[in-house]
Amino acid sequence: MTLYDYSPLPERPRLTWPDGKRVAFYVGLNIEHFLPDQPSTSIWPLDLKPDPLNHGWREYGARVGIWRTVDILDRYDVRASVLLNSDVAEHNPQIIKAGVERDWSWLAHGSTNSTLHTGYEPDDERRILTEITDTIETATGKRPKGWMGPALTETHNTPQMLSELGYRYVLDWTNDDQPYHLNVPGMLSVPYTVELNDLGIFLRGLTGPDFLQMVKDQYDVLRDESAHTGRVMALALHPFVIGQAFRAKYLDLALEYISAQPDVWMTTSDAIAEHYAAS
């Protein structure tokens, strides 16, 4: 059995969003923990132990970038959909406290982004997923409903095991502008993006003005296409990237543009999944 079936968008029933909105917009905010002695997300491919060069770049997000990002999200009343490494609960509890105060949605994102979610035997994976889920629930007060693996990784068993733990959707399969049902009872795929994603955009050498124009263009095209059926627009952010001072101003301008649009539903991935499942 394949995880999902092919479904051409023009052949689907009409998808509507609350209050007649045309584009459901959410911010996928990656709040991650990195181990200093493992390569992980790097911009200098060096085998250093410890690795202050790359680790310091990533750690900036937890120490500074997240707070700059939070101020911008607050300015436009954006509730983040947080892709949370469970190890953050131990290492950066102040970030979780700030998110709880703002009623963010919490999704599981593995334990640390220094370890991919691959290669597990079923019993080990079930134990690891349970530990991640319980840790996030204890730290945030809410049991996560959504999952995105570190670097969008899963095993063949992950969706089924997540369903058994009470999850309702995954973000790993970035192949659509609408949610869709997986061939796992009760499980959905909700759109995420590796394209409108600060990590990919800026590490390719593009600039803040490029980022702003891409956000505007993405929304404008999806709005025009959604005249007959709704679309989802995800914006993927990493505080160690977008939280740099010279980039953050363009996030501010991007959210100013999106939040001013009359056809946008400013929401969370949890709410998108819930609405789609009920419709």
Rank of each mutant, 00 (worst) to 15 (best):
S111P: 00
A277P: 00
G230N: 01
D198G: 09
T133H: 08
L235P: 01
H117M: 15
D37Y: 13
L203H: 06
A278S: 14
A248T: 14
Y120W: 08
H91C: 11
R63E: 12
S81G: 07
V82H: 02
G20P: 04
E225Q: 14
P144D: 05
E195S: 10
Q218E: 07
T153I: 03
L206C: 02
S269A: 15
H181L: 08
L222G: 01
R126C: 05
K97G: 07
P50G: 07
T16C: 06
I136M: 08
G61W: 00
K21C: 03
I43R: 10
N85V: 04
T155K: 04
A62P: 01
P239M: 02
G110Q: 05
L235T: 07
E137V: 09
A62V: 03
S81Q: 14
P50C: 14
D5N: 06
V170E: 04
K216N: 03
Y60D: 06
G61S: 08
R143L: 04
Y76D: 05
L46F: 13
I31V: 15
F34A: 13
V190D: 00
I31P: 00
P45M: 09
R58A: 05
S189P: 01
P18R: 06
S42N: 11
T268D: 10
P13R: 11
P191I: 04
D198V: 07
T155M: 12
K145S: 08
Y60P: 02
G28D: 11
L3E: 09
R12G: 06
D124L: 15
S163F: 05
V190Y: 00
W147L: 05
M266A: 09
H109V: 09
D172C: 11
D37Q: 10
T229K: 09
Y250F: 14
Y167H: 12
N175V: 05
S279G: 09
P8M: 09
Y250H: 14
A24V: 01
Q38C: 02
Y167L: 06
T138S: 07
P144Y: 06
P93N: 07
L165Q: 12
P93L: 11
L253A: 14
R12S: 14
E121C: 06
Y250E: 05
L83D: 03
P209H: 14
S40G: 06
R126F: 13
D71H: 11
L212F: 15
T16V: 14
A271M: 02
V241N: 02
I132F: 08
S105M: 06
D270E: 11
F34P: 00
L129Q: 03
I31C: 08
D47R: 06
L199E: 09
M1T: 15
R12I: 05
I132E: 10
S163R: 11
K142S: 08
R231Y: 03
E11F: 10
D210E: 10
